[in-house]
Structures are given as structure tokens and as C-alpha cells.
Nucleic acid binder design. Structure first.
Lengths: 223, 223
DNA sequence: GCAAAAATTTAGTCATGGCTAAAAAACTGT
DNA sequence: ACAGTTTTTTAGCCATGACTAAATTTTTGC
């Protein structure tokens, strides 16, 4: 079995490779900052992962997962997202609590456990925050949703995914009823990166002003 | 937070202290063999636990948990037994599978998780194999059941607890319907530590011959 | 194109928790 | 009571995965 640290690094690297924020180049410092370790620690682990053929490593330039590295990353991510959904659906956890708990549990569960909660949840394809859940075979799709912050004045859309990185932000969204499946309409956009004015709900029952940081963490599907 | 290794040692030592098999003296070699590590490794850890004031250590003579050591042991045991019961009740695990899974999960769950499954299970006081579950405050009672192997010919009793140590034995018991709450009657006892003849069930619908090792792992309440 | 800044790697350290081999202490049998 | 066996401890080693400080490479600004 692989160590918890290895699984964590691979998961982090996979997510970085598939985020649009870094132009595809996944460097030591980006990994180190995401893992909250010193850069030297990341270098060490990267060298080890390269030894294990879990990634390609070009010193001073960055890393790229191999097929087997990606497979392990996706298994870990599958565990994480199934656990999150189970915590939220079966045990009543709130949006902001599930990530931390799943971060520990994802390394401790067996295949058996994975299969049983998968079944209990009805073989879901999407996690608690809207993230796609990789299949047991490692298939995953990356739907191309737009950020709420990119919508124009007057546009309407449905929330499909939220970033799970900041628990406080998740709590804030939950309070505002900015939940998966909720319809939102941009009624105004302040200039100079100002907030957007939003109507929430199919009946547009609620109106709020939302900062760009939060709006950038919400992914929507336009009609 | 304490390491997984520390929790495991404390749990093991607590169980050894409260088992009647070793006359109360919990020595390095007994701990080492239960933990499946070399004796030298156990000595090292024992010295560390003594440093941390989690146990009293008299070199060459054995250990005894302090109040704080016992508290941690009981918390770990509580986690373990709640998880076992949850796996068995909510996720349909069989008797022989729950121990190994709980051994890993017990170190990964939060207080929150503990509370939620406790609630989901209806605040149980007894685990999946009949073991008492310590309260959150660290209370636990040690009911004084007799081993099925000690019963005399003709005596009848109800199964209240089974040893959880051997998965194969658990599977065997489950197959024979030797479950918690089941009534059994000893109809014959072979001499020279031979097997006992048993009628199983309130209606005595089944009759089996049971070896002493298995019978010694079943704890019963006599009328 | 080159000096300064930033990023990355190397070198060396530490804690954790295993291990084996050898030394020391405690039991055993006669 | 004491020689031999068993148990326990000591000494020294290893892998893992963090860290800091220093060296090196790359990037950036002019």
C-alpha cells in the first residue's frame, strides 16, 4: 500500500494539472504551497514519486503524472468525494465540514467501504459540491462550466459546482442559499471589479450583492 | 493530537489489563505479541508512553495505565466499537469484516463523526460483538459473563458477547447462528477437553458439536 | 546581456516507529 | 544455589517525511 503522504501529493498534483489557474505547468512551489509544506519537502517527495514512476519530473520545470500516478490520484479523489457525499447525505454534515473529515477518512477506508457507500448513495456521479466523481475504472469528465463572475448583466444560470477550498466561504454560500441546482440571475455588475447584484431562486425571491471572490468560486451552467 | 501508534498501544494495554488471561500483569512480551511487533519496539514505545505520563512503567515488571492513559484508551475503544456497530447496522457488514475496518477508521474520525454515528445508532451501550461501549465520559462496565465452555451438561444460557479476535472463528459462529441474544443449551460434554454438544435457538431447532476453543470465545448469561 | 530577485535543489537535521543483535536481568529446575 | 533458559532492555540501524540554511538555476527588469 502507498502512504497517506503519497496519496495526498498525487491528489493535489492531479487537481493542479486540471485547474486552469497555472497554465498547465505544475511547479514545486505551487505544489508546496497547496500542500502547506516547505518547497524543499516538496522537492524530496517529487523525486520519490518520480522514482516510483508515478510522475515525470523535469528538475526546475515541473511535474506531470504518469498513467499509474493519475490512477492513484483518481482513486483517492473518488474516495474523497464519495465520503463527502455520504457525510452530507447520510450523516447530515453541512457543506463546510465535510472536506476536512474526508481528508482523513479517504486514506483509511477499504474497497469494501467504498463500494458500500457508493451503493448506499445510489451510485452518484457528482459530489457534494458538484465535483464529478471518478468511476471505479478511473473515468472522469470535466464539464466546462463558467464562473458566476464571468456572467454579464442580465444573464441567468444554474449553480452546478462550488469550490470546496474555503470552509468559511462555503458556510457563507450555504447561508445565502447559493446551493447546487439553484437558479441565479445577475441583475447588475459594478465596475472596477466591483460586486455583482444577484437574484437567487427560481422565483427570484432573494437579492444579494456578491463579491467577485465568491462569485469566482461558483460555477454555473447557462441556458 | 496523539499518534495512531500511541492510541493503538494504549488500547491494547487497556484490553490486556482487563482480560483475565494474564493475572493482571501486563508485560512487554505480551504487549509486543498482541501488537505484532518485536519486543524491543514495545520497550521503546512503553518508555515513551511513560514519559508522556500515560502509564506507569517498572522495567522488567510491566505497565499500568495512568488515569489519562486510560482515558485515551477508552476514547479509542469507544470509537472502535461505535464504528463497528455502524458498519454492521448501517452498511451491512458481516461480523468478521468490521474489526479490521474499524481498526483503521478509529484513528481518522472526529468528535463530530463519533457523535453523529452515536446518534444514528440510538446511543447504543453495547457493540456489534456484545462488548460494552464506553461513554463519552469514559465510563464502562465489565459484566461478568461466563464462558460457554464452563457450562455444565444440561445448562442453558443466552449469548451476550463473543471474542472479536479471529475473523474465521466469527464467520464460523455466524454460520452456526451463534449470535448475540441466541439461547443455547449444553446437552453433552465430552471428557478430556472434548467438544460440547449444543442445542441452538429458543426452539432448540439446531444441534451442533462445538470445540472448546470456540466455546471459550463465547460469553453467556445464565438464567 | 547582465545583475538582482525569485524559484528550486542540495545538504544536513530531526522525530516517529519499526528492526536486529547483543547485553543484562529474571526466572527455572535440580 | 547456581547454571541454563527466557524475558527484557540497550545499542545501533533504517525508512518516512517533515524542517532550515545554503547553493544553484531560472527568470526578470532595465
Amino acid at each position: 500500500m502507498l502512504t497517506q503522504a503519497i496519496e495526498d501529493y498525487l491528489k493535489t498534483i492531479y487537481k493542479l494539472q486540471h485547474s486552469d489557474e497555472h497554465g498547465g505547468r505544475v511547479t514545486t512551489s505551487v505544489i508546496a504551497s497547496r500542500m502547506e509544506v516547505a518547497a524543499a519537502s516538496a522537492t524530496n517527495m517529487i523525486k520519490k514519486l518520480a522514482e516510483l514512476n508515478l510522475l515525470m519530473y523535469t528538475p526546475y520545470h515541473g511535474v506531470e503524472l504518469t498513467a499509474s500516478g493519475e490512477k492513484i490520484a483518481l482513486e483517492t479523489i473518488r474516495h474523497h468525494r464519495l465520503i463527502e457525499l455520504y457525510l452530507s447525505q447520510a450523516l447530515g454534515y453541512s457543506w463546510d465540514q465535510i472536506d476536512a473529515e474526508a481528508d482523513r477518512l479517504e486514506h483509511a477506508i477499504s474497497e469494501e467501504f467504498e463500494d458500500r457507500i457508493d451503493e448506499a448513495l445510489g451510485y452518484p456521479t457528482v459530489g457534494a459540491h458538484g465535483e464529478p466523481i471518478p468511476t471505479k475504472q478511473g473515468q472522469i469528465d470535466h464539464p466546462n462550466y463558467r464562473r458566476l463572475s464571468e456572467l454579464q448583466d442580465g444573464q441567468s444560470a444554474i449553480i452546478r459546482r462550488v469550490s470546496d477550498r474555503n470552509p468559511q466561504m462555503l458556510r457563507y454560500m450555504e447561508n445565502l442559499q447559493l446551493l447546487l441546482g439553484t437558479r441565479v440571475e445577475v441583475t447588475a455588475k459594478a465596475p472596477f471589479n466591483g460586486p455583482l447584484q444577484l437574484k437567487i431562486g427560481a422565483a427570484k425571491e432573494k437579492e444579494v450583492s456578491l463579491g467577485l471572490e465568491v462569485a469566482g468560486s461558483i460555477f454555473v451552467e447557462t441556458d
